[in-house]
Every structure is written in C-alpha cells, then in structure tokens.
Simulated assay, not measured.
Amino acid sequence: MEIDIRGIMEHIPHRYPMLLVDRVIEMVPGESIVAIKNVTINEPFFVGHFPHLPVMPGVLIIEALAQAAAIFSFSKPDGETTLDSKTTAYYLVGVDEARFRKPVVPGDQLRLEVKAIRISKVMCKYDAKALVDGQVVAEAKIMCAIRDIGE
C-alpha cells in the first residue's frame, strides 16, 4: 500500500518543519512500513548543523523512523487511520541500540524501514533502520507510548 503526503498528513499530526516522512512505498498495517524522506539543503536544521558541512542530525533520523512507525501502527487494512490526534498523543519514549553508520547529507534519500516487535494499546516497540543507496546509515530499537489527552 502506498500513501502520498496528503495521506501521511491524515495519519500523523506533524507539520513543517517537523514532518519527516514524504511518502510511504510499502505498508502492512500493524506490521511494517517502508517510507521515504527526501533530504534537501532547504531543511531548516542545515542552517546550524553545520554551515560548512551540512549533516542531518541523528536525532531527526530517529524521529523520522518514529513517525513512519506511527503511520503503520494505527493504519487499518483499508489505509484509514485509527489514531485521533485530537484525543491521542503518540510519544517517542525510548531509543535502544542506536547506531549511526554514515552521515546523511543534502541530496540523500532516506529509506525508512520499520518493523513492529510489539504493538499494544499503551506501548509499542519497533526495529527500525534508515538506508541511503542500500546502505544502512542508522538503526535502533525504538519505543513509543500512546496516551489519551482528551479534547
């Protein structure tokens, strides 16, 4: 199942400059996702990280992986989402075994691959990796919590 940027914005509440997923190219709801983040020199973080050698911060690569995880974790088989961002918050609460293997620079296309280890009503755990040109540039086990925030 593929999802364009409009569909992504229906699945998660993030917006510029924090929306870090551009397209979903494969998804099995509740199981796994492959998504794309196109990295351009126009990203606001490149102004200060670093002016002489632009490198995407590793923490934002992890955030992109967590956003991809949210998209498939709350997707129904028909592609609709079950996450109501007005009443539910989805927080990144843990990062284990994180490794950053190669810098990500403008012009790179991040392939975000995330597989569910466990999804429950309150906590989710994932095996996540980011690739550029078929090479792993970052990987981690990530945990996210789901909290009711009311309206």
Rank of each mutant, 00 (worst) to 15 (best):
V137T: 09
Q67T: 00
Q67I: 08
G48Y: 11
V21S: 02
A35P: 03
I146F: 06
L19S: 03
V24P: 00
G58S: 12
L110C: 00
S120M: 12
F74W: 01
K129R: 14
F46L: 00
T87L: 03
Y16L: 10
Y126L: 02
A128R: 05
P51Y: 10
V136I: 10
F72K: 00
E80A: 07
I5D: 01
M18E: 14
A138V: 11
I117T: 09
P54L: 07
M123V: 13
A130Y: 04
G107L: 00
L92T: 11
E80W: 00
M56S: 09
E31L: 12
E97D: 15
G48M: 08
Q67K: 02
I117A: 11
R101T: 08
V34G: 08
V39L: 01
V93T: 15
E80F: 08
I142G: 03
P103M: 00
A145T: 05
I62T: 04
I41L: 09
I3A: 02
E31S: 14
A35T: 06
I36T: 01
E139P: 13
Y16Q: 09
P44F: 07
V34W: 04
Q135P: 10
V28Y: 00
G7W: 00
G150R: 10
T82P: 02
S32H: 13
A66F: 04
